[in-house]
């Protein structure tokens, strides 16, 4: 049978920065083809197809419904595979090769990670799973 795609509403204007992305206007309705955990979703809007940031979309059915996984306060060990310098006050700066605990995997691709006493958002695409944390 036909594949039914999820429809999402655009919540803010988005200007594309590469040819594989598509621009969006607030209020547009898009159909989602693929949800990549790095926060880029492949969608179609009328005859256009391309990647858009998941953070600019809300589900058409039940915008109040939380789609994100629950936080895991124990943390899941990950290693940074690329450095990132925080640009917002709720982000965390990390060098390449640092081990962190991922405590909340958000669909927008900006996961909440903990490093020592510091907690902040970090791009999931710069993280690699390092296996289950040893509790002992």
């Amino acid at each position: 049978g036909p594949i039914i795609l999820d429809t999402y509403r655009v919540i803010a204007d988005f200007e594309k920065t590469s040819k594989h992305e598509i621009g969006l206007h607030s209020g547009d309705l898009v159909e989602i083809v693929e949800k990549n955990p790095n926060g880029w979703w492949f969608c179609q809007l009328e005859s256009k197809r391309g990647w858009v940031p998941a953070s600019y979309l809300e589900p058409l059915d039940g915008p109040e419904e939380a789609e994100d996984a629950d936080p895991d306060y124990e943390g899941e060990l990950h290693v940074t595979i690329q450095a990132y310098k925080a640009e917002q006050e709720d982000e965390i700066s990390l060098e390449l090769g640092e081990t962190v605990e991922v405590i909340h995997k958000l669909l927008d691709g900006w996961w909440v990670v903990r490093k020592g006493d510091e907690t902040g958002h970090f791009p999931s695409m710069f993280l690699q799973n390092a296996g289950k944390k040893d509790k002992y």
Partner: peptide, 22 residues
Amino acid sequence: SIKNPPQNPPPRPPAEMRKKIG
């Protein structure tokens, strides 16, 4: 076919939509 997603982090949500930590 679907091309690979962009290799740069997606933009953060608009300020008023950001989830608070905690």
